[in-house]
Design a protein around this nucleic acid. Sequence first.
DNA 1: CTGTTAGCGCTTTCAT
DNA 2: ATGAAAGCGCTAACAG
Lengths: 341, 341
Amino acid sequence: MVTLRDVAQALGISHTTVSNAYNRPGKLSDQLRQRILDTAAGMGYQGPDPLAAGLVRGQSGALGVLFDEDLAYALTDPAALLFLRGVAGRSAAQGLTLLPGPHLADTVRTAIVDGFIVYSVTADHPGFLAARRRNLPLVVVDEPVPAGDDWPYLGVDDRGGAEQAARHLLDLGHRRIAVLVDRLTPGDHRGPVSSDRLRATTYQVARERLAGYLAPLGTPPAIWECGGGTPEHAVPAARALLAAAPAKRVTAILAMTDELARGVLMAAAAVGVAVPDDLSVIGFDDVPEANRTDPPLTTVHQPLADKGRLAVEVLTGSHPAPPQRLPTRLITRATTAPPPD
Amino acid sequence: MVTLRDVAQALGISHTTVSNAYNRPGKLSDQLRQRILDTAAGMGYQGPDPLAAGLVRGQSGALGVLFDEDLAYALTDPAALLFLRGVAGRSAAQGLTLLPGPHLADTVRTAIVDGFIVYSVTADHPGFLAARRRNLPLVVVDEPVPAGDDWPYLGVDDRGGAEQAARHLLDLGHRRIAVLVDRLTPGDHRGPVSSDRLRATTYQVARERLAGYLAPLGTPPAIWECGGGTPEHAVPAARALLAAAPAKRVTAILAMTDELARGVLMAAAAVGVAVPDDLSVIGFDDVPEANRTDPPLTTVHQPLADKGRLAVEVLTGSHPAPPQRLPTRLITRATTAPPPD
DNA sequence: CTGTTAGCGCTTTCAT
DNA sequence: ATGAAAGCGCTAACAG
């Protein structure tokens, strides 16, 4: 392997000058610089070793992004992806290092990054714990919500958005409303949610959205837990909800995410329940897919890409006064209408 | 900042032993190790600096992935994402560093990675050039195809798959067939493709698939270039194709990607052309979305996730005899039928 | 099981 | 404009 020193030696100059040729063009004559670069190229020298340069500079040029689930799964989630696109857009000059998942905390401990973006993980996520110990800049998105200022935080107004959604149904005249949630806690719980289980909710985003749904609703609605966040997880739950006789059946479903809402749409189509005539559906997130469902999904918009951009800015300190929670708002599309009759 | 040495000093032992406490638990007694770890934690020492460890070990623990387009765009492409999931699954223990895009070659020059996965880029992609100069392990996926063994390569049988698709249409009785391609060269060309332009094709995957389509077709079909790869890019092209009087209109469209095929489906629905009764459509890639279109898309399957896994294996040399081209095959779903009449 | 000795390849004052 | 000196924080023989 050929190093800075070899190049310097070959030219009979100091290795400092060679280093400058790469990093401080102003510090030497253009012609010398060119000679250095040419000789270096001729010797097969590829420029300063990034690892060595990083060590002495104390930084790596990459940002680490941490997800709650395995990376392969996160790359499946439209909301996570849109967020990631925002991050990518804002940190164009840097590499984006995606970290593997909740296990493998060691990878986080040894990841060569300048800071962490932690996207919606549980408070006991081993990777999150490891990231906190690294003493690097860090920003948490969505959850865990800090107590006080334990860590920089960026979220959205989940509760407010959910409340708008519930009110919208109420305004349309719906009274038999069900709520579909992916998970209240880690693990594979499926089925109707008891009030005990509801109280046990650990996911903070779920808790907020649920609080928003329940606030305007006088009588507590039926809540159903799907055990996972894909549309396929929502299908059996929706089928169960739609199995009741039309007169007693729910006329609207509040899905905690657009993915779940898509599952509801699939189930409704499969059992011949017309949306929005027989059933209204509202999602949450407003991922790009929400605009392409049939019919297009009424949902609560949150600025996912902006959140990604802002996360980078908070991390790099380049944002003067980052807001803690970004606004959400209901987008009325075509899956909501007055109840039948 | 507290270092390995500080910890060693505080304990009155050699820094090697502290290092061993982290990296070679077997090399010292459990109780000493524990004492070291505890003291270290008490002093706020977070374990060996990854950058320094990387320098002396000569490796970083991350893989770099390079896309043809901006990262934010790549995260939009279902095929790229499925590939990436395969990569992520296989390199679970490592960080995955996504590199920004074709500009910013400097980021590639200075990226702290142990190797590069280059996903379907043009031969003159500045990032690709920079990556090659790094003298790190590298594997190119899809394109550019190496002349001889310029670089390790992994692709799929694009031509064979395309040929199967064309034959299928022929077998069904189609004679008026059109081909939709995203782009033949970089840049925003849209419209019917002349034979000159066809010959000028620089994208190798496009060239291969085109060759596969054309081979079984006696008379050359109409070829239309969309100028981009999203469904939205395909819509105007499809509308133009479908504007002809039914008796003279194409009865089938071969779309070079599933994304394009989705655009065709959207256009057909918009102008009231029934698929597959009035129009057959075949995509390419078999991304997950292809199974969720309405009707489900007939398409050529390529093993995208496997390709990602294999790319990692080729890169790490952990695969004994990596194949150069993985097989493709036609998946007949519901967008193909005999032509009308 | 523990410590000594050498660097890894580079950047960065600070003189010249 | 150039170079000498001094590490960055760590790992890995090797010897005890």
